[in-house]
Design a protein around this nucleic acid. Structure first.
Length: 917
RNA sequence: GGGCGAAUAGCUCAGUUGGUUAGAGCAUCUCGUUUACACCGAGAGGGUCGGGGGUUCGAGUCCCUCUUCGCCCACCA
C-alpha cells in the first residue's frame, strides 16, 4: 500500500489473490486507525457526526470462530461499514464474555484429566487456574474476526471480568439490592447435579422425552384394604412425599380428605389434603405432594404448612440432608443415583403390589443448557431479582415503537415473555464469575457493599464471611451496553457519546437471556433504551435443515472458507443468502456450491477493475459532473442506473435510526434487507456496468480524444461508486481495486470514502433502453434460429423519434448483435420480424437463413398466446366495475397495454399471412 | 396445552400498501474463446404460488379451513 501500483497488464493477474491481499489490507486499515471511534466527534459531545454504535454480542472468551459467529459478525460489519461511509462516527465495540458455567466446565474437564476436581484445588487455586487458561487461550476469536474483515474498534476491546466491568457489575447489584429488587428466596429452583449449581428458568431448557407414568397405590392407614392411586413420572421422589392432594370439589375423593395413607416402602403416614391446584381430570385426580422436589408441590406445601424433606442430594444421589429424615430412604437405596433408584423403586413397588400400572408418557424434561444433564428441582436459598418493575419499561418501549424487533414476529414473543415475567435467579454455586458482594458480620447482619468492608455497616462488628456464590454470567452480560462504555461513571466520554447504541444484531435464541435484559438494564440504570433496533438473524443450517454443530459434525469452518474462497466470498454468501430472519442454508459437503458464487463475483469485480485500469491508465480524470451535451446515450444511462442502484441500496438498508426517537408505524419494518441490498449492488456492477456499459465503451476508450476523456470520467465514476456500494459486503476486493483507481492511492481508503448519493438530474438515459431491447431481440432471434455467429444480418426500422437511438448506436448493435441496423429504409418482401415491445418494429430479413415455416409456426404460437391474454384484458376493461372501482392510473395502464397488444396482434397476423402467402 | 411462523422453478430463496405475461442465484440444456474475466459471455427450458372454500372488478398477496413442517412458551403430576 506504500506506492501507487502500476497498471500494466503483467502486474494485474486475472484472479484476485485474496490470500496475499487480505492480511495486508487488514493491517493497513488497523494501522490507519480507520475503525477507532472518537467520542469528541459525535454530535452528543458537540461534534458534527451522528454516532452509530453496534455492540458485539460478546462470544465466550474461550470460543473459536464458527460459521454462526461468521454470520452474526458479518451482519454487524456490513452495518457499521455502511454508516461509517455515510459519514457517521461509527463504533463497533468488540469484546468477550467470561461465560461462567461454560468456562468453568472446560477447565474442570482439563483438570479432570489430571485426576482432580475443583474441590481438590480449592477455590482460589481453581480461579487462578481458570484465569491462566483464559489468558492462554482467550480472545482468539477476536483475532479470527479480523480475518473475516471485522472493522471493530479493537482499542476498546472489553471483557466482562476486567476490573472496570466487574465494578459495574457490583454497582448494578448493590443498586438493585438497595432498592429492594434483589432478595434472598427459599424455594425450589432448577439444579444441575453435574455442574453443581442452580440455574435460571431460561437456562433449564425443555427437551421432549419419552417417559413413563407410574400409577402407584397408597393404602389407608386405618383400612389397608382401600387406597388412593396417584400417578407420577418420577417414582424416586415418592420417598419425599408428605401428602396426597385431591381437588376440593372432587366427589370421588371427598370422603378421604383428612384421612391418612401409608407411603409404600417406608410406611410413613401422609395426610390426604384438598387443594385446588390439583386437576380433577389429569391422571387419577390424586396427586402426591413432594415439596422439596417439585416447584408446584412446594407451593402446595407452603399453603398447608407441610414438612419439606429432601431425599436427593446435590449430586443427584439418594441421600437425606437432615438427620430427622433418615428413615425416609430404605438402606439399600441410600447413595444410589436418582435414575438407578427410580428403576429399583419401580421393582420394589411392583413386588409389594403397590404398582398399579405403567404407561408410556411423552413429556418435556428440563436439561442444563450447558451440559444437558436433566436438572433436578431442588429446594434451596438463592438470590433473585424482582423482575416486574424492570420489565415494565422494557415492555412499553417495544409496544410504543421506541425499540423495534426485526423480524416483527419476535415482538410478540418478547411481549409474551415480559408479560409473564418471573423472578430471575442470579446466584450460581460456581467459582468462576463475579462473587456476590454480600457480606455477613459476627452478629449475622448481611448486607451488600460496593467495596469489601472491614466492619459491619449496621453494628460495626467484624465481617466474617462473603456470600460464597457468584452471579449468573448473564448478570454481567445485561450491562454490556453501559459497562463497556464506562458506566457507572456518568461522565465517561464513551457513555455520553455512544449510549444509547443503535442496532443490536444477534440470534433469537438469546432474546430472553440477553436482549430483553439489556433493554431492562438500559432503562433501570440509564433511563434510556439500550438501542432502537434489534436485528434477529437466522441460524446457519445444513441441507437437511439441521443446525450446524460440532457434535453433528456438519459444521463449516469460516477460516477454511476464507483460505479457500476468500473472506469476501464468505461474506457475500452469508449476506446475499440472508432474508430477514431467515435461516441460511449451506452445504458442508459441497463448499463450492455455497461459496463459489461469492468468489466468482469477486473475480468478476476484479476483472472489471483490471479492464478499467488497463484501459483508463493513470492520467488524471476529470471529475463529474460533465456537461450533459457531451454525454452519450450509454453515459446518461449508466449514470441513471447508478442512481437507481443507490436508491435501491439505501431503501434496502435504511433508515439507520428513527427520526424522532420512536419508530413511526410505517417505518417499523423498513430497512435491514441485506440480501436485497446485496442484489441491487451486484446487479448494477455486473449486469449493467460490466455487461452493457463497459461493452459499449470499448471503442471510445480505444480512440484518443475528448470523447475518450468523457468515457474515462464516467467509467471511473460509476465503477468507483459501484465499489463503494459493495464495500460493506466485500471489503477486501473493493479496497484493493479502489486504491488503484486514478486519483486514489496510498493513504486513501474506500473504507472511509463517502457513501454514494444520487445526482439531482432526473435523466435516466431511457433512450439506451431502446438499444438494449433491440440487441436483446436480435440476439434471441439469432440464437433461436441458430444463425451462425459470424453470419452478418441486417435489420430495418422505420425512421421515427423513437428509432433515433438505434441509428446513433448502430455501431454498438453491429458489435454486440452482429446486425446492421438501417433506419429509414422500408423492409421489402417476405421478412421474418422481431417486433419490439417498446413499439418499434424491427424487420430482419432472414430468408435463406432460417426455416420460414418454422418462423410462421413460432409467430402463430405467439399470436395465439397474446390473443388469449388480450381477450382476458378486454374482458376486464369492459367490466364496468373495474373501470369504476380501480384506480385511474391502473385503468389507464391497462388501456395502454390493450392498445399495444392489439397492435402487436395485428402485426403478427399480417406476418403470418405473408409467410403463408 | 397455549402462542407464533412457514409452504412460490429440481435446490436455496425474493416477491414492499392486492394491480403489466410471478423474479434471482445455483443446477439443467444449446451456442460461443469477439484483445477484462471460462471463477466468462449469449440464449433456452422449467412454476395451475401446499389442498379446498371465501372477500374483491382483480388474490402468490386479505379471510376461513385442512394438510405438512418449524420455532417459542408452559406449574397437568
Amino acid at each position: 500500500m506504500s506506492e501507487t501500483p502500476d497498471t500494466t497488464a503483467a502486474e494485474i493477474p486475472t484472479l484476485f489473490d485474496f490470500a496475499a491481499a487480505e492480511p495486508g489490507l487488514t493491517k493497513a486499515w488497523q494501522d490507519a486507525g480507520l475503525f477507532r471511534a472518537q467520542a469528541e466527534r459525535t454530535t452528543r459531545l458537540g461534534g458534527d457526526r451522528d454516532p452509530f454504535t453496534v455492540l458485539i454480542p460478546p462470544p465466550n472468551v474461550t470460543a473459536v470462530l464458527h460459521v454462526g459467529h461468521g454470520l452474526n459478525n458479518t451482519v454487524q460489519d456490513v452495518l457499521i461499514r455502511w454508516r461509517r461511509m455515510a459519514g457517521e462516527e461509527a463504533l463497533w465495540l468488540p469484546g468477550t464474555d467470561h461465560a461462567g458455567i461454560a468456562t468453568q466446565n472446560v477447565v474442570e474437564k482439563i483438570i479432570a484429566k489430571e485426576g482432580k476436581t475443583r474441590f481438590d484445588l480449592g477455590r482460589d487455586a481453581f480461579v487462578k487456574r481458570t484465569e491462566q487458561f483464559v489468558e492462554e487461550t482467550g480472545g482468539v476469536i477476536l483475532q479470527q474476526l479480523k480475518a473475516i474483515g471485522a472493522s471493530a474498534d479493537f482499542s476498546r476491546t472489553a471483557y466482562t471480568l476486567t476490573p472496570e466491568l466487574s465494578s459495574a457489575v457490583r454497582e448494578a447489584f448493590v443498586r438493585l439490592y438497595e432498592k429492594g429488587l434483589v432478595y434472598r428466596g427459599h424455594r425450589v429452583i432448577h439444579w444441575c447435579p453435574r455442574c453443581l449449581t442452580s440455574l435460571s428458568d431460561e437456562e433449564a431448557e425443555f427437551h421432549d422425552s419419552e417417559g413413563a407414568m407410574h400409577h402407584v397405590r397408597y393404602l389407608f392407614a386405618d383400612d389397608p384394604s382401600q387406597g388412593i392411586t396417584i400417578a407420577t413420572t418420577r417414582p424416586e421422589t415418592i420417598l419425599a412425599d408428605v401428602a396426597i392432594a385431591v381437588h376440593p370439589e372432587d366427589e370421588r375423593y371427598a370422603a378421604f380428605v383428612g384421612k391418612d395413607v401409608l407411603l409404600p416402602m417406608t410406611g410413613i403416614r401422609l395426610p390426604v389434603i384438598a387443594d385446588s391446584y390439583v386437576e380433577k381430570d389429569f391422571g387419577t385426580g390424586a396427586l402426591k405432594i413432594t415439596p422439596a422436589h417439585d416447584a408446584n408441590d412446594f407451593e402446595v406445601g407452603k399453603r398447608h404448612g407441610l414438612a419439606m424433606p429432601v431425599v436427593i442430594d446435590p449430586t443427584g444421589k439418594m441421600n437425606v440432608m437432615h438427620a430427622d429424615d433418615v428413615h425416609r430412604i430404605p438402606a439399600d437405596l441410600v447413595g444410589l443415583d436418582r435414575f438407578d433408584a427410580r428403576k429399583k423403586i419401580v421393582k420394589l413397588l411392583e413386588a409389594s403390589g403397590a404398582l398399579v400400572k405403567v404407561e408410556r408418557h411423552a413429556n418435556s424434561v428440563r436439561r442444563c443448557y450447558r451440559c444437558e444433564t436433566v436438572v433436578e428441582p431442588r429446594l434451596s436459598d438463592q438470590w433473585f431479582v424482582k423482575m416486574a418493575p424492570l420489565a415494565a419499561p422494557a415492555l412499553a418501549a417495544v409496544k410504543d415503537g421506541t425499540i423495534r424487533l426485526l423480524p416483527e414476529k419476535h415482538e410478540k414473543v418478547y411481549i409474551n415473555w415480559l408479560e409473564g415475567i418471573r423472578d430471575w435467579n442470579i446466584s450460581r454455586q460456581l467459582w468462576w464469575g463475579h462473587r456476590i458482594p454480600v457480606f455477613t458480620c459476627e452478629n449475622l447482619h448481611a448486607d451488600a457493599y460496593r467495596e469489601d468492608p472491614t466492619a459491619c455497616r449496621q453494628c460495626g462488628a467484624r465481617i466474617i464471611s462473603q456470600d460464597a456464590d457468584v452471579l449468573d454470567t448473564w448478570f454481567s452480560s445485561w450491562l454490556w451496553p453501559i459497562s463497556t462504555m464506562g458506566w457507572p461513571n456518568a461522565d465517561a466520554k464513551d457513555l455520553k457519546a455512544f449510549f444509547p447504541s443503535d442496532v443490536l444484531v444477534t440470534a433469537p435464541e438469546i432474546l430472553f437471556f440477553w436482549v430483553a435484559r439489556m433493554i431492562m438494564a438500559g432503562y433501570e440504570y440509564m433511563g434510556e433504551p439500550a438501542f432502537h433496533t434489534v436485528y434477529l438473524h437466522g441460524t446457519v443450517r445444513d441441507m437437511q435443515h439441521r443446525k450446524m454443530s460440532k457434535s453433528l459434525g456438519n459444521g463449516i469452518d469460516p477460516l477454511d472458507v476464507v483460505e479457500r474462497y476468500g473472506a469476501d466470498a464468505l461474506r457475500w454468501t452469508l449476506i446475499q443468502g440472508m432474508g430477514l430472519g431467515v435461516d441460511v442454508m449451506l452445504d458442508p459437503n459441497d463448499l463450492d456450491k455455497s461459496f463459489a458464487p461469492g468468489r466468482n463475483f469477486a473475480t468478476k469485480l476484479w476483472n472489471i477493475g483490471r479492464f478499467i485500469l488497463l484501459q483508463v491508465g493513470d492520467d488524471a480524470i476529470a471529475p463529474l459532473p460533465i456537461d450533459a451535451a457531451s454525454l452519450r446515450l450509454e453515459d446518461r444511462w449508466i449514470l441513471g442506473r447508478l442512481d437507481a442502484a443507490i436508491a435501491e441500496c439505501d431503501a434496502a438498508l435504511g433508515p439507520a435510526r428513527p427520526a424522532h426517537g420512536k419508530w413511526p408505524e410505517q417505518e417499523r419494518q423498513m430497512g435491514m434487507r441485506l440480501d436485497a441490498y446485496a442484489e441491487a449492488a451486484r446487479r448494477f456492477v455486473w449486469n449493467e456496468l460490466a455487461d452493457w456499459y463497459v461493452e459499449a465503451l470499448k471503442p471510445r476508450l480505444a480512440t484518443p480524444g475528448a470523447d475518450r476523456e468523457i468515457a474515462r470520467s464516467v467509467l471511473v465514476h460509476v465503477f468507483d461508486h459501484g465499489l463503494r456500494l459493495l464495500h460493506p459486503i466485500m471489503p477486501f476486493v473493493t479496497e484493493a481495486l479502489w486504491q488503484r483507481l486514478p486519483g486514489q492511492g496510498a493513504g486513501r481508503f474506500v473504507a472511509v470514502s463517502a457513501w454514494p448519493t444520487r445526482r439531482t438530474s432526473g435523466d435516466v438515459g431511457a433512450e439506451f433502453e431502446v438499444v438494449r431491447e433491440a440487441i436483446d431481440a436480435i440476439r434471441t432471434l439469432r440464437a433461436e434460429y441458430g444463425v451462425q455467429p459470424g453470419h452478418p444480418i441486417k435489420a430495418f426500422v422505420a425512421a421515427s423519434e423513437k428509432a433515433a437511438p438505434l441509428g446513433a448506436a448502430s455501431a454498438l448493435i453491429q458489435r454486440l448483435a452482429r446486425c446492421e441496423v438501417i433506419v429509414g429504409a422500408a423492409p421489402t418482401g417476405a421478412a421474418a420480424q422481431a417486433v419490439l415491445t417498446s413499439g418499434l418494429e424491427l424487420s430482419l430479413p432472414l430468408e435463406g437463413m432460417v426455416d420460414l415455416e418454422k418462423e410462421r409456426a413460432r409467430l402463430q404460437g405467439e399470436l395465439s398466446n397474446l390473443s388469449k391474454q388480450l381477450d382476458a384484458l378486454r374482458g376486464r376493461l369492459s367490466n364496468e366495475k373495474f373501470t369504476a372501482k380501480a384506480p385511474p392510473a391502473v385503468v389507464e395502464a391497462e388501456r395502454a397495454k390493450e392498445r399495444e397488444w392489439a397492435a402487436r396482434c395485428a402485426q403478427l397476423e399480417q406476418k403470418v399471412q405473408e409467410l403463408v402467402g
